[in-house]
Simulated scan of single mutants.
Amino acid sequence: MECEAAVSCHDVTLAIGGRTVLSDVCLSVEAGSFVGLFGPNGAGKTTFLRALLGLVPVLSGEMTLFGASVTRGNRGVGYMPQSRTPNGGMLTGRDLLASGLSGEKWGLPRVSREGSAEVEAALEAVDAASLGGRRLGSLSGGERQRLLIAQTLLGSPRLLLLDEPLASLDPVRMREVALLLREVARKRGMTVICSAHDISPLMGVMDTVLCLVRGRARIGPVDEVVTGPVLSELYGAQVEVCHAPSGRVLVSADGL
């Protein structure tokens, strides 16, 4: 029995401002997988994620989510954008999540009992219950990331799209957040597509790698794509992949 595809692209071409970003992309993402999305700046990572949200139209080809056409406002998809500044002054962690319950309205909504329960469940899922009552301005970068991840869980999405969730974190926090994402995804049975510049923090977390470069896409298991020759060809630079005795895989190159 074949596994359901969370994402399917058949000869998909995407363009922004008249410039073709991705051409004739064909790929399938298995439901329940954790996909690491990589590529140089301008390769189309954010454009691809926004297309899955229905925010960037497909110029040609077909793109589907769980067998259905992509639509804007799909509540089965959680999204964490690249640009995010949850400072909020007097707002607390719970306020941040509550605002995500009715994102189409200005200001903080009146939260129902069911909504409050959903907020608490999302906080618990990322081990952030203790952050709910704290003001956003008092939180560290890693703590804010936990709250932003919790916000994407509202509505119990089947697919989680994360645009650079590890950005601006130190190496230790990068790894902590990556492991947290894997744990939450497994417990909730979600499919995750997580873009990043640094491959190393996602090693052992992702099971699939999707690389976008020069308008093309390459997808496959980690051990097939994360190799020196493949990454060197994709990035146009010398990349070394080292297997440590501990089982960790280390990727080193300028810009990776």
Results as ranks from 00 to 15, higher is better:
Ser23Phe: 01
Tyr79Ile: 01
Ala31Asp: 10
Gly76Glu: 10
Ser156Phe: 06
Gly189Cys: 06
Glu30Met: 08
Ser69His: 03
Arg248Trp: 07
Leu234Val: 15
Gly18Thr: 15
Val7Met: 14
Pro221Trp: 01
Leu154Asn: 08
Ser69Gly: 10
Ala178Asp: 09
Cys211Arg: 00
Arg248Thr: 09
Val226Ile: 15
Arg84Leu: 15
Val58Ile: 01
Gly73Gln: 09
Arg216Pro: 01
Gly88Met: 03
Gln145Val: 00
Ser33Val: 00
Gly76Val: 02
Gly42Ala: 04
Ala167Lys: 03
Gly133Gln: 12
Ala31Lys: 15
Ser252Leu: 14
Lys45Gly: 08
Gly76Pro: 00
Pro40Val: 06
Asp24Arg: 13
Gly107Thr: 04
Val192Gly: 10
Ala167Asp: 02
Asp223Trp: 02
Val192Asn: 09
Val172Asn: 11
Val70Asp: 08
His197Cys: 06
Ala150Trp: 11
Val7Lys: 14
Leu179Tyr: 03
Gly141Ala: 09
Leu27Pro: 07
Phe34Val: 03
Arg173Gln: 15
Leu154Val: 03
Pro201Leu: 07
Thr47Phe: 05
Thr85Met: 09
Leu179Ala: 12
Ala68Gly: 10
Pro86Ile: 06
Val213Arg: 09
Leu181Phe: 06
Ile199Thr: 00
Val7His: 15
Asp95Tyr: 11
Ala129Gly: 09
Gly73Ala: 06
Met174His: 12
Glu30Gln: 13
Ala125Glu: 12
Thr71Glu: 13
Gly18Asp: 14
Gly32Val: 08
Ala117Ser: 09
Met1Trp: 10
Met203Arg: 05
Gly88Gln: 04
Leu162Gly: 06
Leu256Trp: 08
Glu164Lys: 11
Arg113Gln: 13
Val230Pro: 00
His243Thr: 11
Pro81Ala: 01
Arg216Lys: 14
Gln145Phe: 10
Leu231Arg: 02
Ala150Ile: 11
Phe66Val: 02
Val21Met: 07
Met203Ile: 03
Gly215Thr: 03
Ala167Met: 03
Leu52Phe: 11
Val213Asp: 13
Tyr79Leu: 05
Val241Pro: 04
Thr227Asp: 00
Leu27Asn: 11
Ser168Gly: 05
Ser60Asp: 04
Ala98Gly: 05
Ala253Leu: 07
Ala117Cys: 02
Ala167Gln: 05
Gly220Asp: 06
Cys194Phe: 08
Ser116Met: 12
Gly17Met: 04
Gly93Trp: 12
Arg216Tyr: 01
Glu62Lys: 09
Ala6Leu: 13
Val239His: 04
